[in-house]
């Protein structure tokens, strides 16, 4: 039972992070390798707002969420916007560079020590006993619920929202989208904003649950196989991919070797690339596009 809980929690973490990869990839065909760093930045933003809104945790969290949305939009406006029209690979390498820059800056500002934003906000994190005998910490439970809400929201937005449909349209044929009056820069900025927002929420919740260290970017990177196994352009895929990766990781830690935890997601990724490179739910033409 505890094993199942662990799988669900880890999968929820990966899923919440992976949807950020999918959003940006789907709209602009760019793979954002700075996603892990942006996610960690979100967690540090919470630490910063916790200090300025002392005694008002809800305001602190709200401020951090708004700030992370702004960060995503700013990243697009000031950096990635310049890379539109360049080779996709150059854009990807730019995100690698951005990640390196952010990592350095975050250590400079907040130091590399472990921090606990949960304590700063005055939250306790009691474990909840589940009916089947498993236990789950409060923030892990909140994380699972958040992931469900985020995915539900994204599905509705992309299917029925005007800007959601426009985002999908821009992803399929940017030229035609521009011709139909859609401002591509606005769509891309929205995608970056939403992606950073969801990533940051994951970062914040992980930090609230188990503290914040500079190794959090590794979690961000491990969520990437989840996005790819499911198919980089599919949200359903990201959800299923996260479940597969999460299960594989928890089970191999439990039954084989704890050291495997960092490598299992990538082993699954390699297996997937060999068998079905476009992922479980991805579109096959994607392979030729990049």
């Amino acid at each position: 039972m505890q094993l199942a809980v662990n799988i669900v929690v880890l999968s929820a973490i990966y899923a919440l992070i992976a949807c950020g990869y999918v959003l940006i990839y789907r709209v602009s065909r760019v793979l954002n390798l700075a996603h892990g760093e942006l996610m960690m930045l979100g967690a540090y933003l919470l630490l910063a707002t916790a200090a300025s809104f002392a005694g008002n945790p809800v305001a602190a969290i709200a401020a951090a969420v708004v700030l992370s949305l702004a960060v995503g939009i700013l990243v697009y406006v000031f950096l990635m916007r310049k890379m539109t029209g360049e080779m996709v690979l150059a854009a990807v390498l730019t995100t690698v560079a951005l990640g390196t820059l952010l990592r350095g800056l975050m250590v400079l500002i907040w130091s590399a020590q472990q921090q606990y934003p949960g304590q700063a906000l005055g939250f306790a994190n009691p474990a909840i006993a589940l009916p089947g005998g498993g236990r789950i910490s409060t923030f892990a439970a909140i994380l699972v619920v958040t992931t469900a809400l985020v995915y539900g929201g994204l599905f509705v937005f992309l299917r029925f929202g005007r800007w959601g449909v426009r985002m999908r349209a821009a992803g399929q044929n940017p030229l035609l989208a521009a011709q139909r009056g859609i401002n591509l820069h606005a769509v891309y900025a929205l995608a970056w904003g939403l992606s950073t927002l969801t990533g940051s929420m994951a970062g914040m919740l992980i930090a609230l649950d188990s503290g914040l260290t500079s190794s959090m970017t590794v979690i961000g990177l491990k969520a990437f196989p989840a996005a790819l196994v499911g198919g980089l352009d599919s949200l359903v895929g990201a959800l299923v991919g996260a479940l597969i990766i999460g299960a594989a990781e928890v089970l191999s830690i439990q039954y084989i070797d704890p050291l495997l935890s960092d490598v299992v997601p990538f082993l699954v990724l390699i297996a997937m690339l060999i068998v079905r490179p476009w992922g479980l739910f991805g579109t096959r033409e994607e392979l030729d596009r990049v």
């Binding site: 730019t94 560079a97 990592r103």
Partner: peptide
């Protein structure tokens, strides 16, 4: 790290 990122960008 930071300077390296800046130079690459």
């Amino acid at each position: 790290y930071a300077a390296f990122g800046v130079v690459m960008i």
